[in-house]
Design a protein around this nucleic acid. Structure first.
Lengths: 213, 213
DNA sequence: GTCTATAAAGAGATAGAC
DNA sequence: GTCTATCTCTTTATAGAC
C-alpha cells in the first residue's frame, strides 16, 4: 500500500534458492519446530541447532524469522490446492467427487502435517499484510471445496436442506483437525482414514433400519 | 511424584480467592488475550493493561504467568465435563443421547470460546506435570464421549462397522474446532448449530433416494 | 555459507513504598 | 491491592572475520 520501494532487488520469500532442496530442508525443520513449540516460543537458536548451525547463519537464508512462517503457510496451501484440484477435476462422477476430495485432502495434509498444523495455528503471528495474503489463499481453497459441495447438491448427490456453507465448514472441521491426533504408522493409513471420514461425512453414523452394521 | 513439600500452605492455582469474581475476570481477560495473541506472545504487561493495572500487580493474584494458562485449561474442561454429563445422564433414550451431547457440548464450548480455544491450542506451553494433569482431564472427557457412542452402538442406534474410537474422534473434530469459525450474533445460534452438526453427524450429507432434500 | 561477538529491545518476575 | 523501579535473562538481528 503506502510502502516505498527502498530495496533495489525484488526477491522471493527466502533470500536465495527459494525453491532449492536446502530451502525445503529449512522449511521442514522450521515447520516441525513451530508445530511442537509454537512459533513465538521457537527460537532461532533452537532451529539452527536442529540444522547443525548457529542462529546467525540462518540470516543468510532469510531476512527475518517471520519469513519462515510465511513460506510455510503459502507452501502448505499452494500444495494442497493444486493436488486436490487435480484429483477432483479428474473425477467426472459428481457423486464421487466429494469422496475423492476427502481422500486427496487427507493424503496431502497428513503427509505435510507439520506445515499444515503450523498454517492452521500460527497464522495469527504474521504481519497484517502477509496474514491477509495467506487468509486469501485459505479462503480460495475453502471456496473450491464449497464448489464441490454445491455441485454435489446440484447433481442431487448431496442434501440441499443444509446450506453448502455449513456443510463445507463441517467437512473442513473433519479434515483439518485430524492431523492433530493422527499418528502415521499406528492405526489407519491415510487412505483408510480418508475412506472412514468420507463414510462418516456422507452416510452419517446413525444406524437406520435400511443399513446393516 | 518426587516433589518435596517445601511450601507450608497448600493453595489453589491462583493465590487468593481462587473462585471469586475477581479471579474469573482475570481468567477471562487472560483467555481472550491468549486466544488472540497466543500464550507466549501475550505479555503480562498487555494483560495488566486490559485490567487497568500494572504488570507487577498481577503477581499479587498469581505466582507465575503459567498459573493463568493452567487455570484456564482446568476450568474449561471441568465445566464442559460437568455440563455435558448432567444433560446426557438426564436423557434416557439412547438414540437421543448423542444429539443431546452434541448440543450440550456446543452450548458450553461456544459460551466459553476463549477458554476452550486456549485449552486446545496452548496446552503445550504448560510444564510437564501440569500438562499431564490437563491431558488426563481431556482424556477423561473424551472417554465419556466415547462411552455415549459405545452405548449408542450397543443399543443399535449407532453403526458398529466403524470402531467407537474413530467415531468419537470424528465427532470431536466436528465439535471442538467449530469454535474457531463460529461468530456469535451473525448466522446460527449455538442451538441451531448444534442441531445442524447433529444432523450431519447422525444422518450424513449424501442424498439417498429414501430422503427428501 | 558459516562463524564469533555483540548490540538493542523486550520479557518475566521481585523489592519495597504506599 | 496496586504502585514505581529495577534486576536478570533471553530474544532477534547485525557486523565483520574467515
Amino acid at each position: 500500500m503506502g510502502a516505498s520501494r527502498a530495496a533495489p532487488v525484488r526477491r522471493g520469500v527466502l533470500n536465495a534458492n527459494g525453491d532449492g532442496k536446502g530451502s525445503q530442508l529449512l522449511l521442514e525443520a522450521a515447520a516441525e519446530l513451530f508445530r511442537n513449540t509454537g512459533y513465538t516460543a521457537a527460537t532461532t537458536r533452537a532451529l539452527a541447532a536442529r540444522l547443525g548451525m548457529r542462529s546467525a547463519s540462518l540470516y543468510y537464508h532469510m531476512t527475518k524469522k517471520e519469513d519462515l512462517l510465511y513460506s510455510i503457510c503459502v507452501d502448505a496451501l499452494e500444495r494442497i490446492s493444486a493436488a486436490v484440484a487435480t484429483k477432483v477435476d479428474a473425477e467426472p462422477d459428481p457423486k464421487a467427487k466429494t469422496r475423492t476430495l476427502i481422500r486427496a485432502h487427507l493424503e496431502v495434509a497428513l503427509a505435510d502435517r507439520n506445515r499444515h498444523a503450523t498454517m492452521l495455528i500460527e497464522l495469527r503471528h504474521l504481519g497484517s499484510r502477509r496474514r491477509a495474503k495467506v487468509v486469501a489463499l485459505r479462503d480460495a481453497y475453502e471456496a473450491s471445496v464449497r464448489k464441490v459441495v454445491r455441485e454435489g447438491q446440484a447433481a442431487g448427490a448431496i442434501r440441499s436442506d443444509i446450506p453448502a456453507k455449513y456443510l463445507t465448514l463441517a467437512l473442513l472441521n473433519l479434515l483439518n483437525w485430524s492431523i492433530f491426533w493422527y499418528h502415521p504408522g499406528r492405526g489407519l493409513s491415510p487412505d483408510e482414514l480418508g475412506e472412514l471420514l468420507a463414510t462418516v461425512f456422507l452416510e452419517g453414523v446413525a444406524l437406520s433400519k435400511a443399513r446393516r452394521s
